[in-house]
Every structure is written in C-alpha cells, then in structure tokens.
C-alpha cells in the first residue's frame, strides 16, 4: 500500500518537472517570436507614419517630378502592373505545365533528377544573376530592348521555379487512390490530369502563383540591369516601351538627398507593402477555400 502511494507521489513530481520544462520552451518560443514580429512591426509602423501623410489621390496619379510634393507614382504602379502581367502570361502556363510534366509524365531517371535539382537551384540563385542573364539574352541577343516585355520575362524566369515547385507539391498531395480510381474506370493519363489532378490541386497551384507574383512585384535588382528607368513621365503604350516599377521608384527616391523625397519613398513603400500583403492574403484565402472544398 505505502509503496504504491510513494510511487504515485514520485510520478507527480516527475510530471511537474516535465511541465516546467514545457513552460520554459513555451516562454522561449514566445520571446523569439515577439522579437521577430516587433522588429517587423516597428519597421512597418515607422514607414507607415512617415509615408501616410503623402498618400493622396494626386500621389497615385502624378508622374515623377523634381519637386517632391508634386512627384507621384503613376508611371510606377502602372509599370509594375504591366510588368507583372507579362510575368503572369509567361510564368503561369510554363510553370504549371512544367510541374505537371515533371510530376506526371517524366520518367524517373537520372535526367529528370538532374532537371529537378536544377530547378531547386534556380530558386536559390541571387536575383541579380537573372538580371545579367536577361541583359545578355533578351536585350542584346534578342533585341527586345529595355522594355516592359524584357522586364516581365526576366521576372517570369525568376519566379518560374517557385511555380514549378508549388505545382508539383500541390499535385503530390492528391492521394494515389484517387488517381487509381480514375485510371480504373478506363481514363487516360490526360483525362486523369485534366478531370482530377488539376482541379483538385488548383488551390495549391493558385496559392503558389499568387506568392510568385507578389515576389515579382517587390523585386528590384534584376530590373536595374535591364533598364528600369526612374524618371518616366508617361504611361507605356506598348510592351516594347521603357518603364519603371514601384520598387525602383522607391529606390530612386531614397537615394535623393532631400528629406521630402524620403517621405515619398515611404509612401511608395506603403503602397507596395499593401499590394504584397493583399496578394499574400489572397493566397491564404484561396488555400482555405480549396481545403474546405476537397476532402479525401
């Protein structure tokens, strides 16, 4: 009797000890998370407070100017929009098709492995490298000029690996018994892909696409080398026109000595950040919708 109760007491102290350990790691986790979040929040708050007074309708619909209070981001956001449009047109079909090919059609051999490895590597290459490659290939070799088309395709190449990888991951989440159900009814590979695999993985694919585009919108480095100009006082009328984009405009304003331009930069940053947040929010929402729609 007494030995049983003493064992129980022992167990209790043991559990209490383990629970204290739990508390400790909970606390450490909380601190690190708070540190990261607070740093980010204070940066955003600082930018928002500096930039907010500058946000007005005229800021959105004015071209850059040498007078800071007259300068706006009209050509920059229109340019960003056009460039991302070209990026989408190029990267979305190419990326999804490559992902589907690698996951469903490609034979699992050394060449496929090599291609897969390359794609993973491409996702990690510094973005300036894409810019230099584009300068050599799109601008000099293909004579596309320092245009919206060149910029869009450069960013398209940059985000292509993201779309390929997320497409493959989305496809891989479909259980094999769903595929087998389709094949067992006599469906061909394409019928299976078209009727089942693509629809069921479209949530994951779309999430990847949106995240890729939000990365493209914020990208600056590769566009410097392919000639995103900072002073564009007109709207582009064709894909071959010169352009500027939001992050480049922002970069330009920050490098000016006058304090007033820094306020403009903060305001442009606020706009850019809002766009990115909006896109990422959309991605999360899409994922939520599709999780609800498809249960296995």
């Amino acid at each position: 009797m007494s030995s049983t109760s003493s064992r129980q007491i022992n167990l209790k102290t043991q559990i209490e000890k383990l629970k204290r350990q739990d508390m400790f790691f909970w606390f450490v986790g909380l601190i690190t998370l708070a540190f990261a979040l607070l740093t980010l929040l204070s940066l955003i708050a600082d930018m928002a407070m500096t930039g907010w007074p500058r946000i007005s309708q005229s800021f959105f619909f004015s071209f850059p100017s040498r007078f800071p209070d007259k300068a706006g981001i009209y050509s920059a956001w229109v340019g960003s929009f056009c460039v991302v449009l070209v990026t989408s047109l190029m990267a979305i079909p190419l990326g999804i098709a490559s992902g589907v090919y690698l996951e469903e059609y490609a034979k699992k051999n050394i060449w496929t492995k090599l291609i897969e490895l390359n794609i993973l590597n491409l996702a990690g290459i510094p973005s300036i490298t894409y810019g230099l490659m584009a300068l050599g290939f799109f601008v000099y070799r293909m004579h596309l000029g320092q245009s919206i088309l060149t910029a869009g395709m450069t960013l398209g190449l940059l985000v292509l690996p993201i779309i390929i990888v997320t497409t493959r991951e989305a496809i891989r989440t479909i259980p094999s018994h769903i595929r087998e159900a389709s094949y067992s009814l006599g469906a061909t590979k394409w019928q299976t892909i078209h009727n089942h695999i693509l629809p069921y993985s479209s949530g994951g694919i779309m999430t990847g696409v949106v995240i890729a585009l939000s990365r493209a919108i914020g990208e600056t480095a590769p566009l410097i080398t392919v000639g995103a100009l900072t002073f564009i006082a007109f709207l582009p009328s064709s894909p071959m026109d010169p352009y500027t984009v939001l992050p480049i405009q922002m970069f330009n304003w920050v490098s000016r000595p006058q304090e007033e331009f820094h306020i403009n930069a903060a305001a442009a940053g606020l706009v850019l950040l809002t766009m990115t947040l909006f896109l990422n929010g959309t991605a999360i929402y899409i994922r939520y919708l599709f999780r609800k729609k498809y249960k296995w």
Binding site: P175, L185, Y200, W296
Partner: peptide, 19 residues
C-alpha cells in the same frame, strides 16, 4: 491497359470517391 480497364472494373480497399 486502358482497353483492359474499360472492360474490367475495380473497387478498392478504401472507399475512394472523387471529391
């Protein structure tokens, strides 16, 4: 194999309706 599967149907271990 597609011709074979058109003639011979299958039901699996785990129910696997399409969503």
């Amino acid at each position: 194999p597609i011709e074979v599967r058109m003639k011979i149907g299958m039901v699996f271990q785990k129910p696997n309706p399409f969503p």
